[in-house]
Amino acid sequence: MIVEAICALAAVYAVIRIIFEKSTLKKLAYLNVLGFAVAGAIVLLLPHPITIGAAVAYFVGATLESNAIASTLAIGGEE
């Protein structure tokens, strides 16, 4: 019970920091915190062996999205 509460509070805190942060590159750090909390919550929701694959797929997808956004900002500059 308390583990679920910790994951939920971490996710809510990360979303609030994402909304009130000005720089786009710093938002990606808080998006990473949200990815950790959601990957933990996915495993806690349904303990089944295939859930490991779902958690890894979600985490790699979120990381790849951050990677693409950061690379585009590095090349083009923030507009």
Partner: peptide
């Protein structure tokens, strides 16, 4: 920056903990 843009030791620790919790 390396933690954000690729799965590193922190991601390995999280997913190993998840796998250990399940199986």
């Amino acid at each position: 920056g390396n933690i954000i843009t690729s799965p590193d030791a922190s991601a390995g620790t999280l997913l190993a903990a998840c796998g250990f919790f399940i199986y």
